[in-house]
Write a protein that binds this DNA or RNA. Structure first.
Lengths: 226, 226, 226, 226
DNA sequence: TCATAAGCGAGACGGTACGTCCGGTCTTAAA
DNA sequence: TTTAAGACCGGACGTACCGTCTCGCTTATGA
């Protein structure tokens, strides 16, 4: 993203240092771990990266933009290994997403840049394109697999309809995990993931009745049917 | 909350001004609207409230604590009017919660103090006791009504089980609305509320099939059954 | 001078620290000695004085104003001990003025603030009122003594005439000493002072003829007559 | 001076552009007029000259050296037209020197480089050889003419004695004019030049008595004898 | 009743970080 | 090799807030 505004491969004068780019983003993540968002300063990042402040400001206009780029790559590491069933896939993504949110650099950074973005339209777009919208690929992948398995009906002919459903599921899964982790501040463990998945797949009735036992670990491995 | 640390009803010397308390909280909300979180300063609040900075710091140790108290009262204004059905109640709370999150003072403040709280245990507790946990009353009320109507089975004899379910539903509803509003940055309108409620009540299958039409306004008023 | 803008002895709020004033001016002089003008920084002065930069800027808007006030007091230490004759008085003031200009804090500061003042009218006035005009007292004192001794005719009845003459003598003496010391960069010693005084008192002819021997030290002590 | 460090008339590779030299010195003078010394930057000079900063630093190591070279040429333009008498010659040089000091590029530059030179021996020598010592030619010329006219006795056989007198007169004339112009900040006009010359030629007594009327313009043209 | 204790507005205090600017060096491609 | 362009590191700039402090003053008791 930092390099996105280079109009041509070689303009004139000395080109920007790619090593500096890397060092800055690494230093930003390290500083986030040590200091959190509010005590993170541009000076500190520059110092840790062995770079002058001007070099930093040449690339990123504000702390929030720098942090978005620094943590975006971590979200891209999320994957959706095939668990063999829709339930297993949902539980898997819930657990791996919550593991990501437990990392200090992501949890402090994510909420902070979102807060910043409420009064900064450009930042809002940057967050969505660099972090949020990219993760919908996980929902799309899980949905496609479930359709192949016959667990879900094939795509509607209406593309808008499909997008609406994907967005909805994305907001519900991501929102629930974020809220549990960072707002309610309680652990997203196998048990919670199981009950959440039940609610998602079967609705409120299924979790309100006392008949949703947490399966044995062995049982989970084979994957429960929907 | 500001007064919570008074050791006895009346110490000695001049008592603290209640008018100052009010003026400060009002000024904080107004400044949040105008400036957002990151440009909000203690000096600005003091100036707007017509109060010295010392008066402010005598009551709140940090910007984040002040803001928590200032916006907490707004969350307490959330209510759950009886919509006649579980579906109507859920849609109602979704829409009124999202309306609250559209207010500039809440949306900028909520994410910011949550971000702050990731590196501040005391603040985390303050947020939970002043804002988050209080809203579970809405889930409890809706659930009780639904049980009275027979839409949900009565409480399990296991209190832990009940708390688990209430927490889960709370995280799913609140998380989905917050994510939709502040992260995906898309509107929580009647249509979205309807589809979300369908997902919550009936599970993934119900929203994936093309048979979940948004009812007419009139139809919604009478409330759809589960 | 720094305190000159206090409208009343005690306005409101915490009064400014007189100790800080003193520490800053002392630190400025010390830093001038160690660093010279161009490497002198506000940060360095603040650090040496054990004072925050804000405290500095609250009193002085710019480095040049600070330095003017810091060195002005040194110029006020110049005195004109009665040497018994006009010649002795002139030689005395030449030597003590040149001694002052040999001090590193004055020689680096004086030219620098004068340079600054060429593009800053306010600074120009500050320099004149704080440093330059005050030294005319030396010319006035020497002139009065010489008149008492009968070495010079009494004041003209025309005040403008008197001021004109005083200004002229002041510019010639101060200018010659400054030029010799700082521009030509050669020493102002007893010998130079003697010949300069001869020129001043008797005119060009007296120094151009080879009949102006430097008197013995003993002879100078008793003071040569004009 | 800029070219003084060329080891041989034609090194190897592309020769330095003489046009760049001229453009840089012109730009320096122009920038001095517009900005004064302290706001003059190397970048600004480079930009105005249409030259890269490297080209500038290849020729001058520091701002002060560049400025010395840029203004030195202006001082070389001073001349001493024969006024017919020693008095006329002195008044003439006083007025033309003060006219030079009224130019913004000289007045701001001269004091600034002198200030800089108080902590920089190399610069001090550069200033003396490029600017100061060259002007003694004016004193020498005036003195020679006066000797030819019989207004002054012929040179002493002692060369040191002669140099001492020339230096003294130079410091007195230049110092007085600089001090009047830049320190006292008052005009060097015909009247001041007349009284100063009287003091220089006849000594203090001549200006202290009320008998030194400013001659009519016509009278001055013919030139008063000493 | 009046001393005492705490509150109050004001604003100076020592700090820290800001984002900008400049100095002087280095690295490109072109000449 | 020099040139123009411009990125690089370093560091000072002057400003803005932070949270604390020191003032003179006010307001309620409780001795």
């Amino acid at each position: 993203m930092a390099a996105a505004d280079r109009p041509c491969p070689q303009r004139r004068g000395r080109p920007r240092s790619a090593a500096a780019d890397r060092a800055i983003l690494d230093a930003t993540r390290a500083a986030l771990v040590d200091l959190g968002w509010s005590r993170l300063t541009m000076s500190e990042v520059a110092h840790r990266a062995g770079v002058a402040k001007t070099t930093l400001y040449r690339r990123w206009a504000a702390k929030s933009e720098l942090v978005v780029d620094a943590v975006a790559v971590l979200f891209d590491e999320l994957e959706l290994p095939d668990g063999g069933s829709l339930r297993a896939d949902v539980e898997g993504v819930v657990l791996s997403f919550s593991a990501l949110l437990r990392r200090p650099e992501t949890k402090t950074a994510l909420m902070a840049v979102l807060a910043e973005s409420t009064t900064d339209e450009a930042l809002r777009q940057r967050i969505r394109s660099a972090i949020v919208d990219r993760q919908k690929r996980l929902v799309l992948a899980g949905r496609a697999r479930a359709q192949q398995r016959g667990e879900l009906p094939p795509d509607s002919s209406d593309d808008g309809e499909t997008a609406r459903v994907v967005d909805l599921i994305f907001d519900v899964i991501a929102g629930a995990v974020v809220h549990r982790s960072l707002v309610s501040d309680r652990p997203v463990d196998r048990s919670w993931a199981h009950h959440f998945t039940t609610l998602l797949l079967e609705g409120l009735g299924a979790v309100s009745s006392p008949s949703d036992p947490l399966p044995e670990r062995a049982a989970q491995k084979t994957g429960g049917s929907v």
